[in-house]
Computed example of a mutant assay.
Amino acid sequence: MAISQGDKVSWKTSQGKTHGKTVRKRVSEFEFDGQTFKPTDDDPYWIVESSSSGKQAAHKESSLTAE
């Protein structure tokens, strides 16, 4: 998957499909919003920003779709 910083992406949520942009790629263990995340070499995490709410969240790269 070829996702880069600043790319427009979408992901599924319980409310439906959400759109936003990638902010930062994380490849080592990190804490975000009170949770610990453990990326793997095959599936890093991205901090993404929702275009509708402006809120940020951490998502596995495999759960993101480039637009």
Rank of each mutant, 00 (worst) to 15 (best):
E49H: 05
P39A: 04
H59M: 13
A2S: 13
G54F: 04
T18F: 12
Q35V: 02
H59W: 14
F32L: 05
W11S: 08
K12L: 12
S63G: 06
D7T: 06
L64R: 03
A66F: 11
G34K: 03
K8I: 08
S53K: 11
K21E: 11
W46P: 02
V9Q: 07
T13C: 04
G54T: 08
G20Y: 08
L64P: 05
Q5R: 03
T36I: 09
T22S: 05
S63W: 13
Y45E: 04
K55A: 04
S14H: 01
V9T: 08
A2P: 14
D33T: 00
K38F: 11
T36N: 02
E29V: 11
D41P: 12
S14K: 12
A57F: 14
S10D: 00
S10Y: 02
W46L: 00
Q56L: 05
V48T: 01
S63M: 09
R24K: 15
S62G: 04
D43A: 08
Q35F: 15
E31V: 04
V48Y: 08
D41Q: 13
K21D: 04
Q5M: 08
P44G: 03
K38T: 13
R26G: 00
S4K: 13
E49N: 06
S4N: 13
S53D: 06
E29H: 06
S4E: 15
Q15R: 12
V27T: 15
V27C: 01
W46Y: 10
T18H: 10
S10V: 07
T13S: 15
P39W: 09
D33Y: 11
H19T: 13
T13Y: 07
T22Q: 07
T36R: 08
T36Q: 09
S10M: 10
I47A: 00
S63D: 10
T40C: 01
E67P: 00
I47K: 03
S51Y: 10
Q15E: 15
S52A: 14
T13D: 00
S51I: 03
A66V: 08
M1K: 07
F37R: 07
V9P: 03
G54H: 06
G6T: 06
Q15P: 07
S51M: 10
V48Q: 07
Q56K: 12
K25F: 03
D41M: 11
D43K: 08
F30W: 06
K55S: 11
T18A: 15
R24P: 04
R24N: 10
T18K: 12
W11E: 09
K17Y: 11
P39Y: 01
T18R: 12
P44D: 06
G54Q: 06
Q56I: 06
T65N: 12
V9G: 02
W11I: 01
F32S: 02
E49V: 00
T18C: 12
V48S: 08
W11C: 01
